[in-house]
Computed example of a mutant assay.
Amino acid sequence: MNKYSLGPALRELRESSGLEAKAVARGAAMSRSKLSKIENGNTAPSVTDVDCILTAIGVSDEVKAEYMATAREAATEATAWRLIRRLGYSRKQQQVQAIESQTTLLRLFQPSLVPGLLQTPEYVRAVFARRNLSEAQLERTIGARLARQGVLYSEGKTFRFIITEPVLRWRIVPPLVLVGQLDRIISASRLPNVDIRVVELSAPQHDFPGHSFSIKDDRTVAIETVHAETVVTDPRDIALYVSKFEGFSAAACSGEEMRALVGKIRDDLLREQETA
């Protein structure tokens, strides 16, 4: 089985399970037409596509491992944001939610924005309002991103976030809205399965932030660039990102020290508004 024969093989799995195509497409957060193209071999599925389809079908761990190994033969995949826009940002959020629901350990490094799983509704709106969406599209996208955040309260999952200090000061939203966002970060950091660390500007560093990335278990790394989202699946490349993550983790502040830093930035914003 190669990557281009994956589609027909996935169709056989679905048919043997007794599930209709529309049910699997809905569970995999993709359109019925896209699933049809994959199953007919007209479109090569991405690693994410295969993961979502297998999860929607409900195959055993052994079968999933076999199919995912084939999907990972192409070690790196890039999907242009213009194509994701065509798919729909809300549907993209649903796909990410499906993957996160199957992830035991999520490690996310973010030097640009507050991570999506920690964003307040106002912050989410500010992020996607820059994408020239209609109001209906914007509302669906905000709802889909906020729906993802429920995974933070799931048992048996661990979330590790590393944020650089400028993220906490970047005024993508008005100061008082940013205050609420900082409070949200402090609150989320108290969850027993959530570790949030901040790389302080004043701390000595031995690496450069580069770009954001998220590591799902040790299976995939998703990287966001200006033009596309890139998914890496080669274990050698994943190891590089794990090493970078752990290096920044060791240099970042955490726990009460982190909450004190975020609280100080919040209080500075409040004092600024009082004297404005």
Rank of each mutant, 00 (worst) to 15 (best):
P175C: 05
L270Q: 10
L176G: 01
Q181T: 01
V63H: 09
P45L: 08
L178V: 00
E200R: 12
V151I: 13
A144Y: 07
E122P: 01
E165I: 00
D234F: 06
R26G: 03
N42E: 15
I238M: 06
Q94S: 05
R145Y: 08
E272R: 04
L108P: 10
L168Q: 00
L106M: 14
L106E: 11
T120Y: 02
Y4Q: 15
R72N: 09
T141P: 00
D51H: 15
S254C: 07
F128T: 05
T275P: 04
A136L: 08
S202G: 07
L270V: 13
S214A: 15
A252P: 07
Y153P: 08
G180V: 04
G150F: 06
S187C: 06
L54W: 10
L182W: 00
P235N: 02
G18I: 07
D61A: 14
S214D: 14
A80R: 11
R266E: 01
L191W: 04
K3V: 14
L106C: 09
S187W: 05
V179C: 02
G7C: 06
Y123K: 01
Y67T: 00
V63N: 02
E135R: 09
E20Y: 04
E15S: 14
N42W: 15
E12L: 12
R259W: 02
A147N: 15
L178M: 15
D268V: 03
E100H: 15
R72M: 08
L117W: 03
P174G: 01
K64Q: 15
I172D: 00
A9V: 10
I186Q: 00
P209V: 01
S212N: 11
V50S: 10
E100G: 09
A71L: 05
F245I: 01
H206F: 10
L133K: 08
F128A: 06
P111R: 02
I196P: 05
V226K: 08
E12K: 13
S16Q: 14
L87H: 04
T43W: 15
F245E: 01
K34H: 13
V242S: 11
L106T: 11
V114H: 03
P8N: 10
F159L: 04
R184E: 11
I99F: 08
M30I: 13
R86S: 02
Q94F: 04
V194G: 02
A250Q: 05
V96Q: 13
L54H: 08
L138T: 01
C253P: 09
D183R: 05
L113V: 13
R169G: 00
T220Y: 11
S189P: 02
V173A: 01
A188T: 09
T104V: 15
T225A: 11
E229P: 01
